[in-house]
Design a binder for these strands. Structure first.
Lengths: 239, 239
DNA sequence: TCGCCAATTGCCACTGAGTGGCACACTCGG
DNA sequence: CCGAGTGTGCCACTCAGTGGCAATTGGCGA
């Protein structure tokens, strides 16, 4: 068969998969806070010690697929050609590439369940937020090293990265909240839509859309800033 | 004297202040992770049980002044006049009002020390991030109830709030990192500057500013989006 | 000034996450 | 088949956070 990796690695990987699957199942059915690590380890048939050699925390096992996605995005950032264009676009494309690089069987379903956990449990949500924060710091380092980003401490650069995180989180939350299937194509579309909504966001007024939902005279977007006319895309994103 | 509050309240408040002061001192000198709650409670001369009746977590006592600031900002949002203008501006002004409403003796110094803790300790930083997230959710509810925000689940609205958080965090981080004194006037200025840098952030290119630092031909800001010419302010914000 | 009521506090025991140490078992290489 | 080295299980431990209950203390009427 395809027993390429040295068999010792495969065991490790197998343990990891069993833990993730058990965790998503238990957390999903009974709630993150109502499942102890001892229970999880018992279900997955590993010792607690082994669990902490595989994952750094109870939260991490719940979000491991999500972290894989970002890892793939960072990987893309490492290998992508370095053309000069807006940082937000570069990051968006890296995320899209990361989405395209997900291969493992059933990743989309695991990812969707992970996101559901993060919206259901404060502890997981906090972990998720912090993870994104640290990951974009790492992305900044790559951008500086490979893409010639000369001022990684410029406020505008830091803000741009925060905006990337925000757009990504909104897109993935929207994707995971869809009723029916949540697959790669939809995630890609939702990601594009969220990033296109960034510009219009700057000018949203507090009294927007008493009539905005799917109307034509919607979006009291004030034209002073950001005249990007892709409001249609943003409006279509509205649920 | 001015013994207006029923004396029982004052005791409680006093305990709170002692805890915060002890925490900032101990955490600041020896590191958040190297101080146990037992030590802190021992120093402040309260039982651990009382500590958890005053604060929800070890992290919270470290960030209590920061949380006070947001509480003041939310309060301002509750009472401010409800004119129709961009959501980001409304939130910025609420934050500025919150800054203006800080009165307790030595708040600026405590706030600065809190921020330092959050940059030094991952646990505190994560707590801080999540707190901001939850607080802006609360702000959204106020905006919906008082300011006529009709579509609080519109992606653009959610993005706008995320951008507010980002600008705020960048400004306060910059403020706390200043060498000399960090006072109200500087925090106000840094906040304004960070919010003004939001627009230009959208168009930052990856190869920005090989020569950008304080130059005139700086900021490879691509004029396609966001032609706001307040790049000067943003550039001045650069350290 | 005294004493009752209610809120607050301290103490104790407990759960559950996360860690270090050590002995055992397994895989891989010869 | 056998050593070297890595991975795993078990045990004991620290520390954050919680619930219960008794003791204390302030508020307040008599």
């Amino acid at each position: 068969m395809s027993a390429r990796p040295p068999l010792r690695e495969r065991r490790k990987q197998r343990t990891r998969e069993v833990l993730v699957e058990s965790a998503l199942d238990l957390f999903g059915r009974r709630g993150f806070d109502n499942v102890t690590l001892d229970e999880l380890c018992d279900t997955a048939e590993v010792s607690k010690r082994t669990f902490f050699r595989t994952f750094a925390s109870k939260e991490q096992v719940a979000m491991s697929t999500y972290e894989d996605l970002w890892a793939a995005a960072l990987q893309s950032l490492e290998t992508a050609p370095t053309v000069e264009r807006p940082l937000i676009d570069v990051m968006r494309d890296s995320l899209l590439a990361g989405i395209g690089a997900m291969t493992s069987e059933g990743w989309a379903d695991r990812l969707r369940r992970s996101i559901h956990l993060s919206t259901a449990s404060p502890a997981v949500e906090a972990h998720c937020l912090y993870f994104c924060h640290r990951t974009t710091q790492a992305a900044l380092a790559v951008l500086e090293r490979r893409h010639g980003l000369a001022a990684p401490h410029d406020v505008r650069v830091l803000l741009a990265m925060d905006i990337v995180v925000a757009a990504h989180q909104r897109s993935i939350a929207r994707w995971a909240a869809r009723d029916g299937i949540a697959d790669r194509a939809l995630l890609t579309a939702d990601t594009r839509a969220a990033f296109e909504a960034v510009g219009p966001s700057l000018a949203i007024t507090t009294t927007i859309t008493a009539t905005a939902r799917n109307d034509k005279a919607d979006t009291a977007v004030d034209a002073r800033k950001t005249a990007t006319p892709d409001d249609r895309a943003a409006a279509a994103f509205d649920h």
